[in-house]
């Protein structure tokens, strides 16, 4: 079983078992492939020149509910405004997320891990995106839904795909909680 993350003088330390690192690596890859832009890079040289590569005139709200949760509307109650804003910002948000996911996939390859603040932040972001996707697949829509899954804590509780996903979700949740607690502790010590 993975060791919880700890705040130490050298940084945030933690360690995954090889099987856990492989599983998490595969999940990170899955989320990366979900976020890769559906349309090619902008071929407008002027847009590239003025640094508007974050813009994507063809973007629409994603069909997949998990991707829509990763890239939510920034404006409520006005679909046209929300879409216009999405077209300006969605591509760079996808790229930012993919960067954090790729960086995290590299970080978890070493065991034990020793993370600086920036690396810890990237890993926490990536774990959060993985959890958002798993939660969508598990149809977690209310806090009661989330609590029901807490019981699946051991591989002997697993008897179908959903209980396996729940076990994975609980593991990633535990991992993220331990990472965030270690970072909050480190931040407190700094003050």
């Amino acid at each position: 079983m993975a060791k919880p993350f700890k705040s130490t003088r050298r940084g945030i330390t933690g360690a995954l078992e090889p099987g856990e690192a492989r599983l998490l690596g595969a999940l990170l890859d899955d989320v990366i492939s979900m976020l890769e832009p559906e349309t090619g890079p902008s071929d407008d040289p002027l847009a590239a020149l003025v640094g508007m590569s974050g813009a994507d005139a063809d973007a629409t709200a994603p069909d997949d509910s998990a991707v829509r949760r990763l890239l939510p509307d920034a404006i409520r109650g006005d679909d046209d405004e929300a879409l216009a804003f999405r077209r300006l910002t969605e591509r760079s948000l996808r790229e930012q997320k993919i960067g954090a996911l790729r960086g995290s996939a590299l970080l978890i390859e070493s065991s034990p891990m020793t993370l600086n603040g920036e690396q810890g932040r990237l890993l926490a972001q990536a774990l959060n995106d993985v959890r958002l996707v798993l939660a969508d697949r598990l149809s977690i829509e209310t806090e009661e839904d989330a609590e029901r899954l807490h019981d699946v804590a051991d591989s002997k509780d697993v008897d179908n795909v959903d209980s396996y996903l729940a076990l994975v979700y609980n593991f990633i949740t535990w991992l993220q909680e331990s990472l965030v607690q270690a970072m909050l502790k480190a931040a407190k010590l700094q003050r």
């Binding site: 949760r69 890239l71 939510p72 920034a74 760079s92 948000l93 972001q125």
Partner: peptide
């Protein structure tokens, strides 16, 4: 708002 989306928070502006 976009920065909070990068963290995975559900944020909007108004």
């Amino acid at each position: 708002t976009v920065a909070l989306h990068s963290y995975g928070l559900w944020a909007t502006f108004e």
